[in-house]
Structure formats: structure tokens, C-alpha cells
Nucleic acid binder design. Structure first.
Length: 211
DNA sequence: CTCCCGATAT
DNA sequence: ATATCAGGAG
């Protein structure tokens, strides 16, 4: 069975067990999604959502973030980790949004990834969630699962993106990634994958060692 | 490649 | 104690 056929089978199974796999970050505007996704680097979505609740009642626009006191913003997002980098990036990012984009969010990869703290993963998620533009969203789960399943042999996120683009039907690109996240959290965990109860084990090339 | 970094599960 | 969490920049 080739990789495309494997993915078709896996998608069919995922459709059954994760019928509405979607972004688990809470947001009420494109700006909130952009910032929450930046905060989500090496942090759980659950933690980001807790921080975001107070954050967005305090800062209501790109201008508010651009004018924020940096030390205060650092404390406001501290529990998400990497808080100095994140605060600096968010403030500068919002300064650019205000000055160059009239407070709106750019609609293409080049302009998005030019923003401080915004890489391809964040850009792909925003492009899909806000504008419906399909993309392979490569986070830690997509990276781990696509390697375990055998869809790529690369550890490089951008290479994984292109590998999966060739294998997954385009209309399911973002969907498939959301489902990899759901499956990564529930079954195919980083530390202790539960292969014995994995619904797609027949289509996976991963073998658990010492078991 | 390294660094950023707190919270949580194991 | 240590690995890991919807990464990005230098």
C-alpha cells in the first residue's frame, strides 16, 4: 500500500473518531488567534486559553498590544513560558500591524512570516482558520505522528509540510493536521504511545520498543 | 545547532 | 528528576 492509500484509510478512520477535530485555541478575532498561536509555542492550548481570557479583556486591539508596557505584558503571559521572547514579539508584531496593515491581519504567507514571532506553523493555522486557505500545519504532533506513521522521514517542519502536501488530498490538508493533533493527544502520545488501542495501527509503521 | 522557559505528566 | 507541551529566531 502506498502512502496516499494509507492516508485515505486513516482519514476515513479519523472521520469516525474525531468528527470535528479543530483548533482548540479560544479566539474571537483574527488578532486573538494570531497572538494565542504565538503564545502556544511549547505550551499547551489549555494553558494558553487560561492566559488569553484575562489578556484579551485587558488588551483589546493591536494598538493596545503595541503600546503595552513590556514588563507588564511579560507578567501577563508569563505562565506560557518563553515569556520574554513572546512579549517582545507580540508587541513588535502588533506595532507592525498598526503601522503597516491598519490593524488587520495579512492574508499571505510572506507577509505573515515576516512578522516577529510568526513562523510557517502559525501562518498556516491563521491562513486556514481566518481565510479558509488550505495548508499543512506542522506542529510537534504533526511532526511526531507523520514520522511514526511513515508519511515522512524528515525532522524538518518545512520538508514535512511539502512531503504531506504530496500525500494528503488538498481539501483535507488542515483537517488532517487537526486530526493528527487530536490523535497525538489521545493515543499517539510523545512519551507513552498506546499502540495496542490505536485505531490506525494497521496503517502505521511505528513499533513500540521494549514491549 | 542553541536558546528561550513555566507548568504538568510520568 | 526528566520529558514534553499545536515554535520561532539567531
Amino acid at each position: 500500500m502506498n502512502k496516499k492509500e494509507k492516508v485515505i484509510h486513516i482519514l476515513q478512520i479519523f472521520d469516525g473518531i474525531y468528527p470535528n477535530a479543530e483548533c482548540t485555541l479560544d479566539y474571537k478575532s483574527p488578532l486573538q488567534l494570531l497572538i494565542s498561536t504565538q503564545l502556544a509555542a511549547q505550551c499547551t492550548d489549555a494553558r494558553v486559553n487560561i492566559v488569553a481570557k484575562d489578556l484579551y479583556s485587558k488588551y483589546k486591539s493591536a494598538e493596545d498590544f503595541a503600546n503595552a508596557d513590556i514588563a507588564e505584558l511579560e507578567q501577563d503571559i508569563k505562565s506560557t513560558g518563553f515569556y520574554r521572547n513572546k512579549a517582545k514579539n507580540i508587541k513588535e508584531c502588533c506595532r507592525i500591524l498598526v503601522d503597516k496593515y491598519n490593524g488587520e491581519i495579512p492574508t499571505n504567507m510572506e507577509e505573515l512570516t515576516a512578522l516577529p514571532g510568526v513562523g510557517r506553523k502559525t501562518a498556516n493555522l491563521v491562513l486556514y482558520e481566518i481565510y479558509g486557505i488550505q495548508g499543512i500545519i506542522v506542529d510537534t504532533h504533526a511532526k511526531r505522528l507523520s514520522n511514526r506513521i511513515g508519511l515522512t522521514k524528515s525532522e524538518n517542519p518545512e520538508k514535512i509540510e511539502y512531503d504531506l502536501q504530496k500525500i494528503v488530498p488538498k481539501e483535507r490538508w488542515a483537517d488532517f493536521c487537526h486530526m493528527l493533533v487530536s490523535h497525538g493527544r489521545a493515543v499517539c502520545k510523545a512519551r507513552k504511545p498506546e499502540c495496542e488501542k490505536c485505531e490506525i495501527r494497521d496503517y502505521c509503521s511505528y513499533i513500540v520498543k521494549n514491549n
